[in-house]
Design a binder for these strands. Structure first.
Lengths: 336, 336
DNA sequence: ATGAAAGCGCTAACAA
DNA sequence: TTGTTAGCGCTTTCAT
C-alpha cells in the first residue's frame, strides 16, 4: 500500500501539496493538481484513514450496536441510518450483541479503542450499565434506539409505544371485543411496560377494568408467544381477542392457534406489533401496529451527527415516533 | 481521552513499560505492573487502536459486506462469522450495499482507507468489478460468500446449489409429481444458474425432459414470485408442483396461490429454498432446502482469518457447503 | 527490567 | 502557491 510520501515523490511535489489536493484544503495550481491526481491513480493510492484520524481526532465512523440482528425489525432501521450517515459524510457499520450484556460491553470497548465518533445503541437489557456511563463520560456520543438504558440520560429515538398499543386496543374494542388478552414484552424493558400501559389506558377509557388474568408477560421471543397463548387457550374462560406486543411472538401465537384448531378471527381476534412480511402469506391478514423503521433509523443518525458536530443544545433530546395502525381481517368486527 | 503518556506519568514509568504491561510483550516487575494497572483504571484509559494499527499495520478489523440486510437469510451468517472472528481476536462489523454496485464500490473504498484486515463479501451483481480487482491487488484479503464475483479468483464459501436443488426436485418426483415448474433466481447469478441445473439434472435422471414452458426466471424478490406464479397458474396446462429457488420469492407465490384460491398440496405442491420462519405459521408447512447459514458464516470467517495470517496455500480455496432437505406437508405424496 | 527515541502516515501551522 | 516540520498515540529496537 503506497503512502502519501510515494505519491508526493512520483508527482514531484511535497506531501503537504498532496494532502491539499486530496482534501481541497488549500489552493493548488492546476498543473500540480493534475500531476498529483495522476500519481494517485497510477499508484492506486487510498489515503490512510487511520493516520488521518489519529491526527484530526475524529474517524467519521459510526456504529449501530444491535441486540439481535435476527429480528426483522432492525434491518430497515439500519438502512435509514446508513443513508443519513452517508449523506453527511460519515460511514456507518453494524455490530451485534445477541442480547448479551457481556458482548455489548466488549463491543463498546472495542469501539472506544477504535475511536469511533458515535454509537447508535439498542442496548441489551442488564443492570450493569457502567460501560455506557463511562463511555459517555469519555465524551463519545450515544443515541439510544428503540429502547433506552434506564438510569442513563442521553439522546434517544423511541417509538410512541403507549399510543401504538392504545390505538390498537381501542380498535379492538370498537370492533366489539371486550375480553382482550395481552402478551407483553419483558416488563423490565421500557418498551414492554409502555405497551402494557397503552393497553390498560384503552381499556379504562372504555370503562373496562383490566383483568390481571388476561395479562401475560412474554419476552419478545417466539417461544413465549407460543407458550403463553397455549396456556391462555387452555383456560375455561378464553379471551375473545389477543393483542401481541411484538411480531416475533406472534409467530408463536399463530403456531399455537393452529395446533389448537382455533380460527382467526372467528374463534379469536388477533392484533400485533410489527409487520413481519407475513401479511402476504398468512391467512387471515393481521391487524398490525407498524413502526416506521426507516424513519427511526434516519432520525437517530441525524441526532447523533448533530450531537457530534455540536449542533444540539446540551440537554438530551428524546424523540417519540408515531406508529401507524393497519387494520386487516384478523380483527374483523364481531357479530353481535 | 487520556493517552499512554498520561498513564505513564501517573504510574511514574515510561510509556514503553505501559505498552509492555498492556500487551504482555515483555516481562515487567509485579510492582510496576500494579502501578500501571492502577493508573489505567483511574484514568479509564482505552488504548488508541488507531495509533496501534498505524504502527503495526494491521487493524484486526473485519467487515462483512452484504447486498441486502433485509433478506432473512443473512443474519445467521453474520452470527457465525462474528463468533468465529471474536474467538480469534478479530472484530467484525457489517455494512450494507443494498444490491447497488455503486454503494458497494464506495463501501469497499472506505474499508480500504480504514485499512481493515479483510472483507467477507456477498457481492452485488454488476459487470464492473474493478474495485474488487484493485483491492485484491493491494493485498487485502477477500472471501466471497454465497455468491462469487465472476471473473475473480478468490477464496469462497458457497452452498452446494446443484445438489440442493437436485435433491429437492428428486423428492418431488418420488412423491409422484411430474409436471414440476421452477421459479429460478436471476440467471446472471451463479446461484441462479446452479439451482436451475440441479432441477434439470433431477428431471433427466428420472427420464423427464425439462419443459421450457415450466421454467420461469425470477429475480429472488418477492414480486417476481408473485407475478410468475400468477402467470403460470393462468395457463391451461398447470404444473402439479412448483419448486421456488429462494424464500423471499416463495412469499409471493403463497400470495398468488391464496388469490387464485388454489390449495397446497392438494391442488399444487410447493417446495422452496430457505427457511423463513414461515414453517410455524403458514399452513401447510413447506418442504424446504435449508442452508446451514451459521456454518457458512463461520467457515468463511475461518478462511478469511487463515488467509490473513498466511496459513493457507496460495491457490484460492473454494468450499461448498451441503444444504439439508426438510420434507414437510407441502409436498405430500400425490394420490395416484 | 526499564527507558529513550525513531517512525508508522497523515494534517496543519509556519516559513519561504 | 509550495514546502518543511512538529506531533497525533502507539510499538519496538536499542541502550542502559
Amino acid at each position: 500500500m503506497p503512502s502519501i510520501v510515494e505519491v508526493a515523490k512520483r508527482a514531484g511535489v511535497s506531501i503537504a501539496t498532496v494532502s491539499n489536493v486530496i482534501r481541497g484544503t488549500k489552493r493548488v495550481s492546476p498543473a500540480l493538481q493534475e500531476r498529483v491526481q495522476l500519481a494517485i491513480r497510477d499508484l492506486d493510492y487510498y489515503p490512510n484513514e487511520l493516520a488521518r484520524s489519529l491526527k484530526v481526532k475524529q474517524t467519521r465512523m459510526l456504529v449501530m450496536v444491535l441486540p439481535d440482528i435476527t429480528n426483522p425489525f432492525f434491518p430497515e432501521i439500519i438502512r435509514g441510518a446508513e443513508d443519513c450517515a452517508f449523506q453527511r459524510g460519515y460511514f456507518l457499520m453494524t455490530a451485534n450483541t445477541d442480547e448479551q450484556i457481556g458482548r455489548e460491553r466488549r463491543i463498546v470497548s472495542a469501539l472506544r479503542s477504535y475511536r469511533v465518533d458515535g454509537i447508535l445503541l439498542a442496548s441489551a437489557p442488564g443492570k450493569d450499565i457502567s460501560h455506557i456511563e463511562s463511555v459517555l463520560r469519555a465524551g463519545l456520543s450515544i443515541v439510544c434506539l428503540d429502547r433506552t438504558v434506564s438510569g442513563i440520560e442521553t439522546d434517544a429515538v423511541l417509538l410512541d409505544n403507549v399510543r401504538g398499543a392504545q390505538e390498537c386496543v381501542r380498535h379492538l374494542i370498537q370492533a366489539g371485543y371486550r375480553r382482550i388478552a395481552i402478551i407483553t414484552g419483558p416488563l423490565k424493558l421500557l418498551t414492554g411496560r409502555e405497551r402494557l400501559r397503552g393497553y390498560g389506558d384503552a381499556l379504562r377509557e372504555a370503562d373496562i377494568e383490566p383483568d390481571p388474568a388476561l395479562i401475560f408477560e412474554g419476552d419478545f421471543r417466539e417461544d413465549s408467544g407460543y407458550r403463553l397463548s397455549k396456556e391462555m387457550l387452555r383456560r375455561r374462560r378464553k379471551p375473545s381477542a389477543i393483542f401481541v406486543c411484538n411480531g416475533v411472538m406472534t409467530l408463536g401465537v399463530l403456531k399455537a392457534l393452529e395446533e389448537t384448531g382455533m380460527l382467526c378471527p372467528n374463534d379469536i381476534a388477533l392484533a400485533t406489533f410489527d409487520d413481519l412480511m407475513l401479511d402476504h402469506s398468512f391467512h387471515p391478514h393481521l391487524t398490525t401496529v407498524v413502526q416506521p423503521s426507516y424513519e427511526i433509523g434516519a432520525r437517530a443518525a441525524t441526532i447523533l451527527i448533530d450531537r457530534i458536530e455540536g449542533k444540539l443544545p446540551k440537554e438530551p433530546l428524546v424523540v417519540r415516533i408515531a406508529p401507524t395502525l393497519i387494520v386487516r381481517e384478523s380483527t374483523r368486527p364481531r357479530r353481535p
